[in-house]
C-alpha cells in the first residue's frame, strides 16, 4: 500500500497539460464497431477517433445508439464486430473494471458515489491508503486522503467548503465535481461523460463545462454525450452525430451550426 502511495498520480496531474496538438497518436480509435441486440443493430459499423486533449461531442436522438456505443467503449458490452484501439493497442474489455484499469473512466448520470460518505472517502473508495498503528494494526490514513483530495480539487479549481460532510449534503454540481476529481486522481486517460449537466442548475452547468475545459487543457480527452446543443457548442472541438445506430456526420464545431446538426440528427440532411 505504501508503494502505491509513492506512485500516486499527483505527478501526472502536474505534468499533464503538456502539448497535445503535437501528439500524433490517437487516444482512442474505434473501427467499424458493431453491436447487435437480437435483430436490432444498435451500433452499425461506427468508426471514431479521439485525439489527446480533444473534447468530442456525441449527439443523437433517443435510441440513436450513443449509449450503446459508449457502453462498448467502457467495457459494459462486448462488441459483435470491429476493433477498439486504446493508445495504439487493440483492446477487449471483459468488464467496466478492466476498462477503468486502462484509464477509461465513465461518469454516469447516477454518479456512482456513496452519498453517506465524504469526498475523500469517495475519491479513495475501494483503494483506501492505510498506515500501521503499533506495527500490526492497519488503519485508514484519513489525513493523507484529505490532503490528496484538497490537492486534486485545488488543481481542478473545485471549491467545496467542508470536505468532511457527506456528499449527500453537497449540491449536484459539487457531487459531479467530486466524481470528475476521482477519475482524474486515479489517472484517467479518457473521460466519458454521459449527460453530465442534465440534472444541474444553470450556474452548476457552467462549472461542469468549465471542468471539461480544464480536462482538455490537461490533455485528457473527453467524450461528451449530451442532448444539450448549447453544451456541445460551448466545450466540444468536434461533434459526431449518430442516427439509427449509424454515424451520419462528423463536424468541427467551429465549422457547423445548430441547424445543420439538428438536421443530421433527424435525418433531414445528408452527411
Amino acid at each position: 500500500m505504501l508503494e502505491e502511495k509513492a506512485q500516486l498520480p499527483k505527478a501526472e496531474i502536474e505534468q499533464a497539460g503538456l502539448g497535445s496538438a503535437a501528439d500524433a497518436r490517437p487516444v482512442l480509435e474505434v473501427r467499424d464497431l458493431v453491436k447487435r441486440f437480437g435483430g436490432l443493430v444498435a451500433v452499425d459499423h461506427v468508426s471514431l477517433v479521439v485525439w489527446p486533449g480533444e473534447v468530442v461531442g456525441l449527439l443523437g436522438d433517443n435510441g440513436a445508439g450513443k449509449s450503446t456505443l459508449i457502453k462498448v467503449i467502457s467495457g459494459v458490452y462486448r462488441p459483435d464486430g470491429g476493433q477498439l484501439l486504446f493508445e495504439g493497442q487493440e483492446v477487449s474489455f471483459a468488464s467496466p473494471m478492466e476498462a477503468r484499469r486502462r484509464g477509461i473512466e465513465t461518469i454516469y448520470q447516477d454518479l456512482a458515489l456513496c452519498e453517506n460518505l465524504d469526498a475523500p472517502a469517495n475519491i479513495f473508495l475501494g483503494r483506501e491508503p492505510v498506515r500501521r498503528r503499533w506495527g500490526f494494526l492497519k488503519e485508514l490514513d484519513d489525513r493523507y486522503m484529505l490532503q490528496e483530495t484538497q490537492h486534486v480539487l485545488e488543481q481542478l479549481d473545485i471549491h467545496i467548503p467542508d470536505l468532511r460532510q457527506p456528499i449527500r449534503q453537497l449540491s449536484g454540481g459539487q457531487r459531479q465535481s467530486v466524481a470528475i476529481a476521482r477519475a482524474i486522481y486515479w489517472n484517467a486517460r479518457l473521460m466519458i461523460m454521459d449527460e453530465p449537466t442534465a440534472a444541474l442548475g444553470v450556474a452548476e452547468q457552467q462549472k461542469v463545462l468549465e471542468l471539461v475545459r480544464t480536462l482538455r487543457a490537461r490533455g485528457v480527452p473527453v467524450i461528451l454525450i449530451s442532448h444539450n446543443m448549447q453544451d456541445v457548442f460551448a466545450v466540444a472541438d468536434r461533434v459526431v452525430v449518430m442516427r439509427r445506430g449509424q454515424k451520419v456526420g462528423e463536424r468541427r464545431v467551429a465549422e457547423t451550426t445548430t441547424n445543420e446538426l439538428v438536421g443530421l440528427m433527424v435525418g433531414a440532411e445528408r452527411a
Binding site: 473494471m97 456512482a112 458515489l113 456513496c114 452519498e115 453517506n116 473508495l125 475501494g126 483503494r127
Partner: peptide, 11 residues
C-alpha cells in the same frame, strides 16, 4: 450507502 457504487469502486 450505495451497493452499486461500492461494486463499481471494486469493493
Amino acid at each position: 450507502g450505495a451497493p452499486e457504487a461500492a461494486r463499481r469502486a471494486g469493493i
